[in-house]
Amino acid sequence: MSAEQQNVSAEVSFPHEPPTDNVKRIWKTFWILLIITIIELGLGLLIHALDLPDDLTRLLLKGTIIILSLAKAYFIVSIFMHLGDEIRNLILTIVIPLMLFIWFIIAFILDGDSYKHLRNKYDKHFLERTTELPVKKAEQAK
């Protein structure tokens, strides 16, 4: 394992400069972030412009935007914050606790979704009062 060997040979020398730290890489990352943001924006506007119903296409577009955002987060943390240049011990002590988010997000989103279904089932007034009316499209076409 190369990381292991690197750990052994490294000395305690805090004011170290990351080996790959150069201006060219910073600007490259900037362009990557900018391009991803523009793609995200394009997809966001597409969702708005198409005025899609809550179907699979909309879900896929939103999923793509989320994945692109995670990619942006990776570039910011790894390159701008230099976490990618730190030794593995440090990377793991930060990244492993963040795994809690996997449970955190799934559990709470599902809870919200389940609450919606229960309310729609047992509280017809809520269902009527909050479901988007079909008149919207016809009205806008006029």
Binding site: G44, L45, A49, P97, F104, F108, I109, G112, K116, T130
Partner: peptide
Amino acid sequence: MSDTFTFGAFLISYGTIRFSQNFWPNPGD
């Protein structure tokens, strides 16, 4: 990292409420 969890909790509570609603405003509007 701890601040990430603070923001994460806020955003997830927002997500939970959004998933519990039939209607949510369209950001484009």
